[in-house]
Design a protein around this nucleic acid. Structure first.
Lengths: 291, 291
DNA sequence: TATGATTGCTCCATTAATGGAGCAATGAAT
DNA sequence: ATTCATTGCTCCATTAATGGAGCAATCATA
């Protein structure tokens, strides 16, 4: 059951009506070709080609075999062309895992635009706050915010987005407006999960502040709501708090300082990606960096 | 264009839903299988299987590819089964080159019987006195009388037939009856082509006699006719002269002596023979030795 | 929760396939 | 008739594929 390749070689030889000719076409030394065809004949137990030193002619068996082989090889080529189209023509279902709040705010308009560009792609998004296991779950791609843990996964950077500090006016009135990063140590700093310190930059200096909070939670949206309800200071991506900022529910704290810009990655389980995934990632790379 | 085999492996893996399982079925170490599938994916540029350490699942591309591959591999198997039938089920055209006089006398009844046994075989016989070049002419088999020259051809012995000396009574009356082999030197000895000596045996002794003749010719039939017309002594296969013997046109000379038995061979260009040829040679082997 | 069996993958000594050069045989052209 | 280019095949040093053992990860079972 290891003769399929030799069938393809046989087809080439018959087409070229010559071993050397076929070898040149395939790009293979004629010695190999000759041996491979002989091996094929030996395995079948029948002579396929009648060879003179100058000519080759199909035997009766060879004639029959050639007809079959040609069909098979052509079909194989077709199958691969079809796969090639999957690489070239984006289509199919794109399954992606997205960080819920980031996706809602930053990605929704991009996804809408992408969907308009590629009408053949159907989408299956899983918006979640957990980092799903790409190895075991059938996602084509996952978007990850922040630095990545080590893994076998392939990560492609999409953008690096700035983060700033925000709080409600009422909170600041009540707890006092921080004048420098160190002041944050005495504030309620609402971080995601169990964040223990924030790193701040002012363009020249970098400083780290230990932070504490009564809340441990994994919802960006809820952190923002808490901040809007005067519960503390948050470090957040710009667009997430755009509405709260516009309505005055939140305003920037330490405006000359900003947090370490957050990298956004597209993570896949393999580099061998269908066109839909490739285009999706490329699109995000091109557009996310501009927002 | 060297991926056909891997397609077959891929089909097995999908069928077995496991690399190790498929490897066992194929009889191949799983390491090889794993590498081959990976190579296939790399060459296509798409992941076909979604692997966990415990399970594999087809990707979208893999699903499509599998459908195609399965058809292709099945067709290939079918093509080989069909060839296998050519090996098992004798049919098709049997092209044979036969020595004309030997064929007429010895082979005709056998051929008739063989044709009855295998109704699917059609025959194309070339009766000739020359030894055709099997390498360049499209014969499945050639029957050769006498020792063979060295060549790349494959020879299978069919029979070893006795030859005796014959002449017409009139010739013997005129030229005298030889009493011992040496007497032949003074007789007209009609050999095929330019035969220069005859070897004779009496069961105990072997002796060689130089012979001469005014005739050089390549027709066994004509030599017999010449002998019947009192032109000399011939050394001939029994059956060829059976009629002449029965009608009294010829009778044995030196009846206690006989020539070196003549081997009969079936010669083919290759050992990879279709069933029709294999059966034909086997049939001749079994029946020619009995005549 | 802990254990054991099983999965697919990786490492590296062994084995098999490869491919360049040379060969005799052939056929076209002189 | 003779030359010369070309054919398919064979030889053997080089290269690539193979396959057994071990690995971490995983799932079923207790």
């Amino acid at each position: 059951m290891e003769f399929l390749n030799d069938m393809a070689l046989f087809v080439e030889v018959v087409k070229a009506k010559s071993f050397r000719g076929a070898a040149d076409i395939i790009g293979m030394p004629n010695s190999t070709l000759s041996r491979r065809i002989s091996a094929l004949e030996k395995m079948i137990g029948l002579r396929l080609l009648h060879r003179t030193t100058r000519k080759i002619r199909l035997t009766e068996a060879g004639q029959i075999y050639y007809e079959r082989c040609k069909r098979i090889v052509d079909e194989a080529k077709l199958a691969h062309e079809q796969l090639g189209e999957m690489l070239a023509q984006p289509s199919g279902i794109l399954r992606a895992s997205l960080p819920v709040d980031f996706a809602v705010t930053y990605m929704t308009p991009l996804i809408a635009e992408f969907a308009r560009l590629y009408p053949s792609i159907v989408f299956d998004f899983d918006l979640t706050s957990r980092r799903i296991d790409l190895m075991s779950e059938p996602f084509d791609v996952a978007i990850r915010i922040g630095e990545l843990e080590n893994s076998q996964l392939i990560a492609r950077p999409l953008a690096v987005l700035p983060v700033y500090l925000y709080a409600s006016s009422r909170y600041l009135e009540r707890s006092g407006e921080p004048a420098e990063p160190a002041d944050l140590a005495h504030h309620e700093c609402l971080g995601l999960m169990k964040t223990s310190e924030w790193t701040l930059h002012d363009g020249v200096h970098t400083t780290k502040v230990s932070i504490g909070s009564r809340f441990t939670l994994n919802s960006v949206r809820m952190i923002c709501r808490l901040a809007a309800l005067d519960m503390g200071i948050i470090m957040m991506l710009e667009k997430i708090v755009a509405d709260d900022l516009a309505s005055g529910r939140l305003r920037r704290v330490l405006p000359q300082w900003h947090g370490t810009p957050v990298p956004v990655y597209a993570v896949t389980e393999t580099r061998l990606l269908p066109a839909k995934t490739q285009h999706f990632i490329k699109f995000l790379q091109e557009h996310l960096s501009k927002v």
